[in-house]
Structure formats: C-alpha cells, structure tokens
C-alpha cells in the first residue's frame, strides 16, 4: 500500500510543479555550460596543451607541477603578482574607508533636495566604463594639453606626466578607482544607516550629545556589521583582479608597476598561446583567493559577526 500512495503523491507533486522545473532548464543549463563546464579546463594547468589534440587528448605534463614550477621561475609572473597585491592593497586602504566617511557626511547633510542631487551625481561615475574613464584621464592628464597640467602650469608647477611615471601612475590608478566607485559604495552604508532606530538619536539629543558624539556612538556602531562584511569581501578579493581597469590604463613605460595577473594571463595566454602556463597561474590565483576568503570569513565569525555565509 505504502509505496503506491507515495507514488501517487509524487505524481501529484509533479503535476503541480512541472512548469517550475521546466523554467529552471535554461538557467541550470547556463550555469552548467558556462560556469561549471569550463572548470574541467582547469586540467590544462597539469597538461601540455596541444592545439590540435584539444584539452582532453593533450598529454599530462611531466612532472605534473611543471607549469607551476615554470611560472614561479618567471620574473614577469612575480612582478604581476606583486603589482596585483600592491594595487589591490592600496585600493583597500584608500577605497574602503572613504565611502564610509562620505556616507556619514551625506547622512549629516541637512538639506534634503541638495542631498538627493549630490547622491545622484556621485553615483554617476560608477556607470562609466574603464575604457571611457581611461580615455578621459589620458586627455585630462596629458602633460602639455591636458587641463590639469594647463592649470598647474598657471600655478607654476609641472608639467607632470601622471600616466608615464611609476609612482604617479600608481597614484593615478588608485585615484581614478576612488573617483569611479567612492560614491556608489556609499549606497550600502546609507541603507544600513536608515535601519538605525531613530529613538537612539532622540535620546542622545536629550542628553545633549554633539554631532560627532552621535556619529561615533550611534551611527558607526549601527553600521558596524555592514562594515565588517564588506571588509571581508574586499579582503577576499585582494588577489582577485579586474581586467578592464589595468588593461585600459597601462602603457609600455609603466608596465613594471602596471602589469597585473589578469593582464599578464591575457597577454601571455591568449595572445602568446601559452595556455598551460597561464592556466597554472590562474589556478594558483583562484586557490589563494579562496584561502583568503575563507580566512577572512572565519576571522569575522570570531569577532561575533555574521560573515558572508
């Protein structure tokens, strides 16, 4: 009796839900083909890629860690690794606290209309591509014709070649990152601030607390967990690399500080056909990234926060 009844139950369940499963076919197929299937190609890192044989038939490399070994002996790889860490680290140091401060500032802005206008404008750069931004930067910062140097020249400074000298390139790279994302990254903090109980502010007002005291004792603790979760996510990405930003900005004169892992892998892998070597580098990068992410998450949990999973 029992199995029969459960069989009928299954049939009834499927009759009610089959359209839902039908809907899932496309998204699942997408994830399997374009997100999970390429993971099988990671095997390239331990094979000698042969263009005519394809990924599967290519022979295993001997020893298996051959390409890792080769990568670790390549000077350009270490340079790209160092630059990735350096640029992402600087991004974290400058790019992380600034949106918090800007969010606090916007929150204190007393004029509602003006606040909305400010928000609209500071979010805008987020929607411009790195190609557009680098195109603008090259014109603005050009040593002779750029408006920045023209104005500096009137003040008796320069001309400064922002994009062609090592230290200045790094500074410009970080500054443009701030320009693009600083405003956008305030959104999540501003949302967290609206979640703070207004009674806390009223009580503080009665106690005669100053503006700074209220920020320090109410607003900041109120967004503490948001700050920590975002900090974890950002630390997890310290070895991750964007592609458009460094690729659009770099030029031959500053490759020593501008080349990062993503652009190195593109140049040597896709342009230079060294698929096995660059797969090994990519795998190394992913593994370290995952380790970073897990450690950061564990760290947050130790601080008594929710973490990201």
């Amino acid at each position: 009796m029992k199995p029969k009844r459960s069989g009928r139950k299954t049939l009834l369940y499927l009759k009610r839900t089959w359209t839902l499963y039908l809907m899932l076919i496309l998204p699942v197929a997408f994830a399997v083909i374009f997100r999970y299937l390429p993971m099988t190609n990671i095997s390239m890192a331990v094979k000698d890629y042969n263009m005519f044989k394809g990924v599967w038939a290519s022979p295993w490399s001997d020893p298996l860690y051959k390409w890792f070994d080769k990568a670790f002996k390549t000077k350009d790889f270490w340079l790209a690794l160092r630059n990735t860490l350096m640029l992402n680290g600087l991004d974290l140091i400058f790019g992380f606290p600034l949106p918090i401060m800007l969010a606090l500032l916007l929150n204190e802005l007393a004029f509602r209309r003006y606040k909305r206008v400010t928000q609209t404008i500071v979010y805008l750069p987020h929607f411009l591509s790195w190609i557009i931004i680098s195109g603008m930067a090259r014109q603005l910062l050009a040593p002779r014709t750029g408006v920045v140097n023209v104005l500096l020249g009137k003040a008796g400074v320069g001309p400064i070649n922002f994009l062609m000298e090592h230290g200045l390139y790094v500074a410009t790279y970080i500054a443009l990152g701030l320009w693009k994302e600083m405003g956008w990254n305030t959104i999540i903090y501003l949302a967290a601030i609206t979640g703070i109980n207004p009674e806390l502010y009223e009580a503080a007002e009665v106690d005669g607390a100053s503006r700074l005291r209220k920020i320090w004792h109410i607003t900041l603790p109120g967004i503490r967990s948001t700050i920590i979760v975002l900090l974890i996510m950002n630390m997890g990405r310290i070895l991750g690399s964007e592609f458009d930003r460094p690729y659009a900005m770099q030029n031959d004169l500053v490759m020593k500080v501008a080349d990062v892992l993503s652009t190195y892998v593109y140049r040597v892998g896709i342009r230079g056909f060294q698929f096995s070597l660059t797969s090994a580098i990519g795998l190394f990068q992913s593994v370290v990234c995952v380790i970073f992410l897990f450690s950061a998450n564990a760290l947050a949990k130790r601080f008594g926060e929710r973490g990201i999973w």
Binding site: I33, F34, R35, L37, P38, M39, T40, N41, I42, M44, G54, V55, F243, S262, V265, Y266, G269, I270, F275, T278, S279, G282, L283, Q285, S286, V290, L293
Partner: peptide, 16 residues
C-alpha cells in the same frame, strides 16, 4: 565565488 578563470573560459569558447 568560484570561477574557472580566463584561460579555461577561453578554451571553452573555442570548444563550443
């Protein structure tokens, strides 16, 4: 959180 990476993705596009 996990992606195959530039080269494995590129090779997939070739395979497809």
């Amino acid at each position: 959180y996990f992606s195959a990476g530039t080269i494995p993705n590129y090779l997939l596009m070739k395979q497809l």
